[in-house]
Simulated scan of single mutants.
Amino acid sequence: MNIDWSFLISALGLAFMIEGIPYFLFSERMPRILLTIVERGPKQLRILGLIAMILGLLLISFGRSLSEI
């Protein structure tokens, strides 16, 4: 298996950028949003994480299909 390190590092950088957008745009609201997330139960957080992973996988597959055109 050959790993394309530049692609992996670029993807990680993009993930950090996307993660930082809400903190930059909604810095006044983020503490309240984070408190509501903390109040959720483990099952709800697991479902939220699963939905985020599925959406990420769909975006990756969509992006790859665009590059094949």
Rank of each mutant, 00 (worst) to 15 (best):
T36I: 05
W5K: 08
A52V: 03
A11F: 15
L50D: 00
V38H: 13
S6W: 02
L55T: 02
I54L: 13
F16C: 10
I21W: 02
L45G: 07
I47C: 10
L58S: 12
L50C: 03
V38W: 13
S67G: 10
L8F: 09
A52E: 03
P22C: 02
N2L: 12
S10K: 12
L14S: 13
Y23G: 03
I18E: 08
S10C: 02
G49N: 04
P31Y: 09
R40H: 06
I37T: 06
S67M: 11
I51C: 14
W5E: 03
M17R: 15
E19K: 11
L14H: 11
S6H: 12
W5V: 02
Y23I: 02
I3W: 12
A15L: 13
L12Q: 10
L55R: 05
L25Q: 09
G56D: 04
K43P: 00
L58N: 00
F24W: 14
G63W: 02
G49S: 09
S27R: 15
I37C: 00
R64W: 14
L34R: 13
R46G: 07
E39M: 10
M17L: 15
L14V: 02
L12T: 00
L34Q: 06
R32D: 10
F24P: 01
F62S: 02
I51H: 05
L35E: 10
N2G: 04
P42D: 08
V38Q: 15
S10F: 09
G13T: 00
I9E: 15
T36Y: 10
L59N: 03
L58T: 06
F62Q: 04
G20R: 15
S61H: 03
R64F: 14
F16Q: 11
I21N: 04
E19G: 12
I47A: 15
I21R: 11
L34E: 12
I33N: 13
A11R: 10
